[in-house]
Measured scan of single mutants.
Amino acid sequence: MSIQHFRVALIPFFAAFCLPVFAHPETLVKVKDAEDQLGARVGYIELDLNSGKILESFRPEERFPMMSTFKVLLCGAVLSRVDAGQEQLGRRIHYSQNDLVEYSPVTEKHLTDGMTVRELCSAAITMSDNTAANLLLTTIGGPKELTAFLHNMGDHVTRLDRWEPELNEAIPNDERDTTMPAAMATTLRKLLTGELLTLASRQQLIDWMEADKVAGPLLRSALPAGWFIADKSGAGERGSRGIIAALGPDGKPSRIVVIYTTGSQATMDERNRQIAEIGASLIKHW
Rank of each mutant, 00 (worst) to 15 (best):
E26F: 15
T27L: 11
L28H: 15
K32E: 11
A34C: 14
Q37A: 06
L38E: 13
A40W: 05
V42M: 13
G43L: 00
D48G: 06
G52L: 05
S57A: 09
R59K: 15
R59G: 04
E62C: 07
P65N: 04
P65Q: 03
M67G: 12
S68G: 00
T69S: 11
L73K: 01
C75R: 02
C75F: 02
V78Y: 03
L79F: 04
R81M: 06
G85F: 09
E87C: 10
Y95W: 13
S96Y: 09
S96V: 12
S96H: 08
S96D: 08
Q97F: 14
D99S: 09
D99H: 13
V101S: 08
V101W: 05
E102M: 09
S104A: 07
V106A: 15
V106P: 03
T107D: 00
H110T: 15
D113S: 12
D113M: 06
T116E: 11
T116M: 12
R118S: 13
C121W: 02
I125N: 03
N134H: 02
L136V: 13
L136W: 01
L137E: 05
T138K: 15
P143H: 08
L146S: 02
T147H: 06
F149C: 13
N152T: 14
M153V: 07
E164Q: 00
P165T: 06
L167W: 01
E169S: 08
E169L: 09
I171P: 15
P172S: 09
N173E: 08
R176W: 09
R176E: 06
T179G: 01
T179E: 01
T179C: 05
M180K: 07
M184V: 09
L191G: 01
L192C: 06
T193P: 01
G194I: 05
L196S: 09
L196R: 12
T198W: 04
L199K: 11
S201W: 03
Q203V: 06
Q203Y: 05
L205P: 00
I206T: 11
D207N: 13
W208C: 03
W208G: 01
K213E: 05
V214H: 15
V214Q: 06
A215C: 05
A215T: 14
G216V: 14
L218T: 03
A222V: 06
A222F: 10
A222P: 10
P224C: 05
A225V: 11
A225I: 09
G226F: 14
D231I: 04
K232D: 00
G236V: 00
G242N: 04
I244R: 00
I244N: 00
L247G: 01
G248S: 04
G248P: 01
G248W: 02
P249F: 05
D250Q: 06
S254K: 11
R255C: 05
V257N: 03
V257A: 14
V257Q: 02
T261F: 12
Q265F: 06
E270S: 14
Q274F: 06
I275Q: 03
I278D: 00
G279K: 01
S281H: 09
S281M: 13
W286V: 02
